[in-house]
Amino acid sequence: MSETSQATISAPVSPGRAKFLRFLVRDAGVLLALVLITVFFSATAPYFATSGNALKIFVQIAINTVLAAGMTFVILSGGIDLSVGSVLALCTVVGATVMIDESLSPGVAILLALLACMATGAVCGFLNGWISTRWKIPSFIVTLGMLNMAAGAARVVSDNSTITGLPQSFVDFGNLIIGGFLPSIFLIAVLVIAAGWFVLRFTVFGRMIFAVGTNDEAVRLSGHNPDFYKVAAFTISGLTAGIAAMVYLLRLNIGSPIAGVGYELNAIAAVIIGGTSLSGGKGSIIGTLVGACILQVLSTGLQLLGVGDNFKPIVIGLVIVLAVILDAYRERLLRVIR
């Protein structure tokens, strides 16, 4: 058809520049916040800017980062998972029980423990997802139930006691600092994030997670089964809770039924500070890593500054609220830029 009308795509702001602006607002914002508070504490807190302290921070964020990676999937798909802390506890006692089995050689025991942790976590996560989609119950409620059930199960499995005596090679690996700067458990956390990033960014599955979180009815009417992806997201969250339990064992060398209390809130905080929207469909897992870093840097920095244990939670709580407020502004900005 011949016509006089204009080209379809007209752009005073070039798409490339819009992309860059989007990147600045979405990802660079949190990164900048991390840099700023790091600089702040380096300048004010004694011992903060030492390599020893940096190593300590890397070690400390590992568990939360792994949990938060799975949590990112759940929140992106439009749910929430309050059970990861006690699922982690359950997995630590399961993993430790397997590992101290004398009839197995250490290598086999460790491998089996890893599989047992991942399987236990995945089953808990699957149940979360299946129950909440099958009976259309908000995941908030279902995972609150799982929080209690898994905590109870952890006590049953461990007979309400901590489990010690893990293989020496396992303990040694947990203390390993590769090349003098990279703690082994931090490496695990980064690998989990990298895997999550790859899945969310490049795969069909990842695309569907975003789509389901954006509008699950539209996804259903497009010929998909949104529940499948929701259940998968919860299963992934359970799986990462299992991996986080292994990291816990590496770091603390005990399986404990009272491990992980409150971990779910730290994981959610990392995800939200990292810019993932609680209403689903928007966010990034790299942001989650940065969010976890921000939380730990704050915590360590405040401690080194001599802010008492009573005041620390107040400050951190404020930061979380601030992050959500900023998120509201960021959404508005992004809406205009896209």
Binding site: R207, A211, T214, E217, A218, V219, L221, S222, H224, K282
Partner: peptide
Amino acid sequence: GQGLLLDMAVDKNITI
């Protein structure tokens, strides 16, 4: 309500 992923890009809406 039922057709679009409003906060997602045009291309992703089309290929879904």
